[in-house]
Design a protein around this nucleic acid. Structure first.
Lengths: 333, 333
DNA sequence: GCCTATGATGTAAGCGCTTTCATTTATAGC
DNA sequence: GCTATAAATGAAAGCGCTTACATCATAGGC
């Protein structure tokens, strides 16, 4: 590969001038620029990004840490982040934290040692204090799907409360009044918020909360299966089932098939997240759309604005969910 | 961040010695090593990977180019590749080619300019000649899911022919004789091979091929829908449907639901790939497992062996598919 | 005890670029 | 046409590390 030195010799200018036309951060006379560009083209020159990084202490790389690389969720996220940075000439280094504290910390250290200019973190296990400390060390990062008070300006989140509200309101508007709820693990922030939204909707429609109609699931398919079994076993009356995510909704629907409960005729089911398999479920799952792609893109913009100094970039910190009506919900009666 | 220089001063040794204990490529006296390690620990030193790259002309980064970052397929692939390299202290840079020739070329150039030590490519649009030329330029890469004669030793593939054979044999063994086939776009190598496998199975069971029972789909859900509509419209008799991938199988099953065709009682359906949503389909989809994760891991090993010089690593170039029996297929009669 | 072979450590020259500062060249005002 | 000023370019010092080569220390052979 040709180096900047060879380009400068061929163009008959100094190294510095070539560097200037590459970075276009200092004016260069038109005629000189043309000469340099011709030389670069002739040699098929491409700047060595490693050398650029070392000299400028900018790596043009952004570290992305997500819980899992597979699964229905993160692909969309990565896709949008990559597209945004690619357009800006930056590249993306990925790592998986597997929702495990020590792995998450290790991954962050790993990415930091890779001289990433910034980190986009989707972390679940690491503590708020750790993140605050990290920020104190001067590490530039954005948090996705997590809100930390002291780091509020670097959190891009979904309005989970409103999502929970929308899901239950959807059922109420369809005329349902006996609504069972399958929550996520209550120690998780988003699970709690979604549940609070559910309560708000019930209150708005003057429906009394029946504690027996709430089941704490695990955000997995099994959670939905267990929830349905539990509600039926206790002989509870309900015509609608609100699930705090799509996996659990899928589990509940699978169980319902086995028990010959017709969906949505006998039971309306709504999920949350709108993961990519939601429309493969039969009947196609009505759910709350989590615009994870938009959130990823916004995180990338945050980096472009704050780390790569494009102050005009507009940042939206909170995203609003919406109902995606498909075939698993049905008017009451 | 501390530099190697500060470590050397604190430990009372030269830069070179510190570098040696970092890389452990040259013997260092035990006592010296201990001193250096203590100094590194005290300073919280981590080598600057950019400087290492520049000096050693090894970036310890591997570029991964896949068609899409989302979708049911690539997450698993990335996940396994990342895990393998992570364990080896390497990192992974990702890019998406979107099955578009110029984007694929551009992405490859992008990754090359990032000084990746090697590339793992899942490319569909770029020509064989381009790849051969790339290899001639001394660019180290492995090809996933694509076989190029002249590059045979750097191709990790699935035995698609055998997979096609297995799918149809599965139906034949269940007693079906009237078997419709939905292929992928025939210009795609894998679609062609899967179809040839289908033909082989039919021949083995002495079943005559009925050209009317073959429909060329698009590897998307719509392909499956169109195929079913086509077969029914032409009043063809068939009790089994072999689809060249899971998306098309899903489309066919959705259409079947709408037409009140019972699966598997009236029609057995098998897919191909075993993507993550296959078991969300109702009934759970019987399919051919494509061990994409294993293939990714093997590609990573290829790099470790050939680029990072670990000659003992064993490489498996061709992977064998297998039948995953679920609920969408049923014995004839 | 001296010389040599061997292993451990130090010295210093880059890797390919950016960037500060000095220098040269062009522009304008009189 | 000459100086004051601004604009364009060049020279050179790093960025933090690796590595070839030189040097020094140690041990073994006689």
């Amino acid at each position: 590969m040709a180096t900047i030195y060879e380009v400068s010799k061929l163009a008959g200018v100094s190294l510095a001038t070539v560097s200037r036309v590459i970075n276009s951060n200092t004016p260069v006379r038109e005629a000189t620029r043309k000469k340099v560009e011709a030389a670069m083209a002739e040699l098929g020159y491409r700047p060595n990004s490693v050398a650029q990084s070392l000299a400028s202490s900018r790596s043009n790389s952004i570290g992305i840490l997500v819980s899992e690389l597979n699964g229905p969720f993160y692909g969309v996220l990565l896709s949008r982040i990559e597209a945004e940075f690619r357009a800006a000439g930056k590249h993306v280094i990925i790592a998986a934290g597997h929702s495990n504290e020590s792995l998450e910390r290790e991954s962050i250290e790993f990415l930091r040692s890779r001289n990433c200019d910034a980190l986009i973190l989707h972390v679940e296990a690491v503590s708020d204090d750790y993140l605050i400390e990290l920020s104190g060390k001067g590490c530039a990062f954005v948090l996705i799907n997590r809100y930390v008070e002291d780091l509020a300006d670097r959190c891009i989140t979904l309005n989970n409360h409103y999502g929970g509200y929308l899901a239950t309101r959807h059922m109420l508007e369809l005329g349902h009044r006996d609504i069972a709820y399958v929550s996520g693990p209550m120690w998780k922030h988003d699970a709690q918020e979604r549940y609070n939204g559910h309560l708000e909707a019930l209150a708005e429609f003057n429906v009394k909360v029946d504690p027996a109609l709430v089941f704490e699931g695990d955000f997995q398919e099994t959670g939905g299966e267990q929830a349905l079994a539990y509600f039926l076993q206790h002989n509870l009356k309900f015509t609608a089932l609100v699930c705090a995510n799509d996996e659990m909704a899928s589990g509940a629907i699978t169980s319902a098939h086995d028990l010959k409960i017709k969906i949505p005729e006998q039971l309306s089911v709504i999920g949350f997240d709108n993961v990519n398999f939601a429309h493969y479920i039969y009947p196609k799952l009505t759910t709350i759309d989590y615009p994870i792609g938009d959130i990823g893109q916004m995180a990338a913009r945050w980096v472009i604005k704050n780390v790569y100094q494009q102050p005009n970039t507009i940042i939206q910190e909170v995203f609003e969910p919406r109902v995606v009506q498909r075939d698993s919900t049905h008017a009451f009666g």
